[in-house]
Design a protein around this nucleic acid. Sequence first.
DNA 1: AGTGAAAATTCCTGGCA
DNA 2: TGCCAGGAATTTTCACT
Lengths: 156, 156
Amino acid sequence: MKAKNLSITIDGIDKKILRKLMEDARTPILEIARLVGISGAAIHQRLKKLEKSGLISGSQCIIDHKVLGYNTLAFVGVYLDKTMSHLDAVKLLKRIPEVLECHFTSGQWSLFVKVVSKNNAHLMHILNEDILTISGVLRTETFVSLDQQIDRQIQI
Amino acid sequence: MKAKNLSITIDGIDKKILRKLMEDARTPILEIARLVGISGAAIHQRLKKLEKSGLISGSQCIIDHKVLGYNTLAFVGVYLDKTMSHLDAVKLLKRIPEVLECHFTSGQWSLFVKVVSKNNAHLMHILNEDILTISGVLRTETFVSLDQQIDRQIQI
DNA sequence: AGTGAAAATTCCTGGCA
DNA sequence: TGCCAGGAATTTTCACT
């Protein structure tokens, strides 16, 4: 079977570079070079290629919510009135800082939202005061994540 | 109102450092220093403090699934037989590379899973061949993300 | 694609205000 | 806390293979 002809071809060395940077984005290029066994300059140009291809879309440092006192993670299914445009609802959801993800989904809900909060009372406040007050939001269904056991990116 | 006495106190400079690194984890310290208006050494010791406090739990480069051909994102609610231990189920879910998140949730489902796949056929395969074949999994409910409009970390 | 070398930049530590 | 200074390390580019 022929490989799909995307704009990038990734070999074993690229994979090693990616795996290392997915684990720690601040790993020095020279350290990767030593790990992989080729020169720093080579790693450098491979990295540029990977960035240019869009495979690496950026990097970020990860903030631990819990250290900030955000101990609750929840998913919220949102039912929208058919007169409410999804995009307008999303625009208003964006203004709620605790909303981290918002998906337009197939199935029973119009929108599906991931929310963090400090505790259950805070979550209730976000639901009642912030989300349900958006005009066009009919009702919501909430699922609290009691424990997150897997959290990762796709494996390379 | 008194601020909660957590183990860290974060001032405006810390926030600027964090915001920059959340946007690009590879930003040089000296660039942040110029941005903020204090010396690199000061940024350096603040960063160490932030890492030590656990607020910064790491960094990672972000891979764009779509460039790898993973075009579908879905959420799957999993119903487990009461004889099946959640932890065993999670152990088996971990072996499915397309499973990126797994939560133990309140509500109707035992587990709630985020999955990426190349297309709908691939998603069906993951559901039928990988997830439903786990012993103890009774049935699943799937919600496909047709479009993700918000994806961010908590704002500092 | 990879290498080695060189220049610019950055990291990081210690001493001091 | 923050700043400065300077040696070590890293990034980045370039000519060559």
